[in-house]
Design a protein around this nucleic acid. Structure first.
Lengths: 152, 152
DNA sequence: CCATTTAAAGACTAAATACTCTTAAATCTT
DNA sequence: AAGATTTAAGAGTATTTAGTCTTTAAATGG
């Protein structure tokens, strides 16, 4: 579905959102918590800062932070920054120029699914996800329990 | 979304369905029409014959054919044969064991989309697609017009 | 100014995907 | 039996994605 980089980007951004601090969070802290390769995550977050979704700051007390309130960052911004927009535009049979003018036989049906997928990602904000996490003790790590569990 | 192999497999199976013949169609014919690498397509169709979705026959007048009526082959059978079932089971945040028991914060919403996607592929038969193609002169090739256009 | 902490940048390696090529095996025609 | 046609099988190559490692640059604190 999404690339690994995209999934890691989503998880990392969401993790920062759950901390709900003004301070910069070191990437090492995030990579440790989410069990993602530090160097790989650094690259992914570089992309997000280049797309003005996150801010970075070097040196002691540096790290990364959300570029704006979590209410104003939605999943699709992250997905499109990392994986591009092709997922939401390409024909499922990969035919160039497929559209209402010259549709493939699955165009109509697939467009519907794609729109719903896009709509979901557009209406899913980091704030919403973060709230859901704290409310139901959901998890964004690969470990056993929720964020508030021992070890989490 | 789907791998190239999967997309080619779908296109090839659909192409065979549109021919609506009992005869075996040489893979070369299909690869020429759909502009897919012959050797690559051969491998993909091998997978489909191994999954009993298509039949193959060697030698002159040989080729491949649908293993059963086009009404009984749906898109999901082809997708799962080539790309596996992970697309319809994996967590969107790639968390192991994500499910109703230990959901990730997107689990509920994503499951809905995934179900719709799966349902669409389950109810999309080669017969249905084939009918749509002939009815509206839709295309499964990368060329300009529909199947009945000059050159098609 | 120097050591330390942090991200940025870029080269490098590994694995997965997307092909290509060669040989073998089955089948048909003559 | 010989030769042509076709898929099967498997090795080989290319490209993309994933991940590692090293060096550089920015910022802080002493």
């Amino acid at each position: 579905m999404f690339s690994k980089a995209c999934v890691y980007g989503l998880r990392a951004a969401l993790y920062v959102a759950t901390l709900d601090k003004q301070a910069f969070v070191p990437i090492k802290t995030i990579s440790d918590h989410l069990d993602i390769s530090f160097h790989f995550l650094t690259k992914i977050l570089q992309t997000l800062t280049q797309h003005h979704i996150m801010l970075s700051y070097r040196g002691p007390n540096g790290g990364i932070a959300l570029a704006r309130p979590a209410e104003q960052i939605n999943a699709i911004q992250i997905v499109e920054a990392i994986d591009g927009t092709r997922l939401f535009s390409d024909c499922i049979l990969d035919l160039p120029g497929c559209g209402t003018q010259r549709p493939c036989p699955m165009h109509e049906q697939w467009s519907r699914i794609r729109s719903e997928m896009k709509h979901l990602l557009e209406t899913t904000t980091l704030a919403g996800l973060s709230e859901r996490i704290s409310q139901f003790d959901l998890r964004i790590t690969a470990d056993e329990g929720g964020l508030n569990s021992p070890g989490g």
